[in-house]
């Protein structure tokens, strides 16, 4: 059995009247989805490795309300936001990092008007800053020279204009970064957003994740890198449906780094 992870909660910090450097917002997928939990753990290992003083909300965390809002349930969204903001403000949180672009977008852009003002960063942005501060070491190693393509999450890329942080990290891994026909501001959605993750698709002739997977396969990658737990699921399913799961891995940028560093 692997060594147990140390993941302090805000309640514990509070009890010791300490304040962490950053709050790690885990998100629903990161907490409950089996695939996403691996990303969460990889990111935690990187945080420890870089000596980051962080905490999570644990059982006090609740859905940001993103899927509800985008499905049209503004009421439920604002209820969730109010609850979360109360908890976050109670702990006087200043900075939040999350591995989910949906949580990132919602807390960063939609919470302020409801009374929640924090500095919010996506985990790829945070890792990049750790790298720049010299706290995290990323070197080629395992993935050096591998053909890797990055699938832009809508809510990180188009939604918030961040295209480079994940790519900078991949470059640090000395991979052969290849771009899909549709990338960055023109990147095609994986098909999960706007509540689609939680419903059957409307009638059509193909699933969106298959279309996107086909675009990825065109560039013959060894790894499809993702920066969102939902994209990860969608692309993993896509690769499986093409019977390519033995040859092509779908991995979060954090997992790639953690694995390169043998964490």
């Amino acid at each position: 059995m692997a060594e147990a992870l140390k993941v302090p909660t805000m309640a514990e910090y509070m009890a010791e009247s300490k304040k962490p450097e950053v709050l790690f917002w885990v998100g629903c997928a990161g907490s409950f989805d089996d695939r996403a939990k691996k990303i969460t753990k990889a990111f935690v290992k990187l945080l420890h490795n870089a000596g980051v003083d962080f905490a999570v909300l644990g059982t006090e965390e609740s859905c940001t309300g993103d899927p509800a809002k985008r499905a049209g349930n503004e009421f439920l969204f604002q209820m969730q936001a109010a609850t979360n903001i109360e908890v976050l403000n109670g702990y006087e949180i200043k900075k939040i990092v999350t591995a989910c672009p949906h949580c990132f977008n919602t807390i960063k852009n939609e919470y302020p008007a409801l009374g929640g003002n924090y500095e919010v960063v996506h985990h790829t942005q945070f890792l990049k800053s750790l790298l720049e501060e010299g706290r995290l070491k990323v070197e080629g190693g395992k993935f050096k020279g591998k053909r890797i393509t990055f699938h832009d999450p809508c809510y990180l890329g188009r939604g918030n204009g961040e295209y480079e942080a994940p790519r900078d990290l991949l470059r640090k891994l000395e991979v052969e970064l290849i771009e899909m026909r549709k990338c960055k501001s023109e990147g095609l959605c994986c098909g999960a957003g706007g509540g689609q993750m939680f419903k059957e698709p409307e009638p059509g002739n193909k699933d969106v994740n298959i279309e996107r997977t086909e675009q990825a396969l065109e560039v013959e990658p060894e790894v499809i890198a993702a920066g969102c737990p939902f994209c990860n699921t969608m692309m993993t399913d896509g690769v499986k449906s093409k019977n390519q799961e033995d040859d092509i891995a779908v991995m979060d940028v954090a997992e790639l780094i953690a694995s390169a560093e043998d964490l």
Binding site: V26, S31, F32, K37, G58, T59, E61, C63, M79, F198
Partner: peptide, 18 residues
């Protein structure tokens, strides 16, 4: 989401089980 704070039927108390 309304009842357990997540879009899936998991208990909020299990949120740190990972």
């Amino acid at each position: 989401i309304e009842n357990n704070g997540a879009p899936w039927p998991y208990n909020q108390q299990d949120r740190l089980n990972w």
